[in-house]
Amino acid sequence: MANREINGEGQPPVLTVNNLKTHFFTDEGTVKAVDGASFSAPAGKTVGIVGESGCGKSVTALSILRIVQKPGRIVDGEIILRRADDAEPVDLAKLDAEGGAIRAIRGGEIALVFQEPMTSFSPHYTIGNQIVETIRLHQDVGKAEARNRTIELLRMVGIPRPERRIDEYPFELSGGLRQRVMIAMALSCNPKILIADEPTTALDVTTQAQILDLLREIQARTQMSVIIITHDMGVIAEMADDVIVMYLGRVVESGPVDEIFHRAKHPYTQALLRSIPSIFAAPRSKLPTIAGSIPHPHNRPAGCPFHPRCAERMMGKCDVHIPRLRPVSRRQMASCFLYHEPDEAPIT
């Protein structure tokens, strides 16, 4: 862990996702859960992916690990994982989803923390059993050694009396403790990338803060790259270095957290920011919401997916052409015709 060098600004990112498309082929039609998402995760930094529920955040995470369930499938794009400096980068999207290569990466190099600490553990085995299993899947260690490491991990994530807790069942732990255990399990094999999918949504506010602190502290220590997926702008503000805003399976805006919060370009991002409750707002004033709801996945609007809800749409342009993600400032990108002209014939 300690010998992993800290990547500077100029170094290539650990993970690069290019034009990822994950579609679900259901009887009722094709659902384009992720439809051309691109972003990258630099080492030692935190990327926040934000969006409403159903925008494809979680499917993106599952796609990276290649555990998208049928009838879902990656139809296009690449997911480049850069391993040690001298090794060839791998395209995860091209690997056999059941094969040994991707299995070594899952839980080994890329670990996942889920939203539901309650149901993310099997109630039939002790937490120790489930962490030891992960360690022994990826590292050639004996049972006793794995158990010792597990106790160490539990201590590291702040679980009191880990040598006793290790033999408890998930339902004996509180939600906050369970999420700590989940993080311990994710960290058990020193991953390069930690994907946290709504890690604090199911927890109460004080526990949320503790878990986020824990994640930050661990990142500072291990210099791993963290991808945090959330619908909560507050979590983003607290955690992320870079922000990816997703809407209906597409990245609509990306950039450093400061730029996004202070100089959001895309109308959707602006709307999202406006819907954060503020203590400076006038008392009893109505919290702005985004008009309408996310369209039914089978009925995606033509053109820009956000145009039916957009205040600044330009009919004839926004409802016909699909905007591309383009630079709008030195470090910021947005896909919106407010900032660039459509460059090709209409695509649906």
Binding site: A271, K286, T289, I290, A291, G292, S293, R309, A311
Partner: peptide
């Protein structure tokens, strides 16, 4: 009037 009014018919 405003795209962010909450009363918009769902």
């Amino acid at each position: 009037e405003s795209p962010f009014q909450s009363e918009l018919d769902e």
